[in-house]
Simulated assay, not measured.
Amino acid sequence: MTTHHQHLVYGYAQSHGCLAFADADTAAAEAAEIRALATAHTWGEARQVQMTQLWNPAGPDYHDPEDGYADDKPFDITKVGAVEGGTWPRMVTERAFTVLPQDLQDNHGKRQLTVHDGDYLEIPLDCEAELVAELRGRGYEVIRDDDLINLLDGFSLGSLAG
Results as ranks from 00 to 15, higher is better:
L135A: 04
E141C: 06
A40G: 11
C18H: 02
P65A: 08
V115P: 00
G109T: 12
G86W: 04
L157I: 12
R47L: 13
D61F: 09
L121N: 02
D119G: 02
T114G: 08
A129P: 01
Y120G: 05
L54C: 09
D106E: 07
S159T: 07
Q105P: 07
G44V: 10
D126S: 07
Q48S: 15
K110P: 15
E94P: 03
A38D: 05
Q50R: 04
T26P: 10
F97L: 07
Q112A: 08
D103C: 03
V83N: 00
T114Y: 05
H41D: 15
Q105M: 14
T78D: 11
A31H: 02
Q48D: 13
L148H: 00
L113A: 13
D61G: 14
E122N: 06
Y62H: 08
T2R: 11
T3I: 11
Y62G: 04
A22K: 01
D147A: 14
D25S: 04
D61C: 13
A27E: 03
P65C: 12
I34C: 05
E134I: 04
D147W: 05
L152Q: 01
A96F: 06
P101L: 13
R111P: 14
P124I: 14
A96C: 14
L8I: 04
E66P: 01
D64A: 13
L121Y: 01
G85M: 10
G158I: 06
L131N: 03
L8Y: 04
R138I: 15
E30V: 12
G162H: 03
P101F: 14
Q14R: 06
A96H: 03
E134P: 01
V49A: 05
L19D: 07
C18T: 11
A20P: 04
L151F: 03
Q50C: 07
D103I: 08
L160F: 14
H4K: 06
T52Y: 10
Q50D: 09
Y10C: 13
H41S: 15
I143P: 01
T52N: 10
E30M: 14
P65W: 07
R111S: 12
N56T: 05
A40M: 14
G85P: 00
R136A: 12
I77R: 00
L100F: 14
H63D: 08
T114V: 06
D67P: 00
A24K: 01
A96M: 13
E94H: 11
D106S: 05
E141T: 13
D147R: 02
H108P: 04
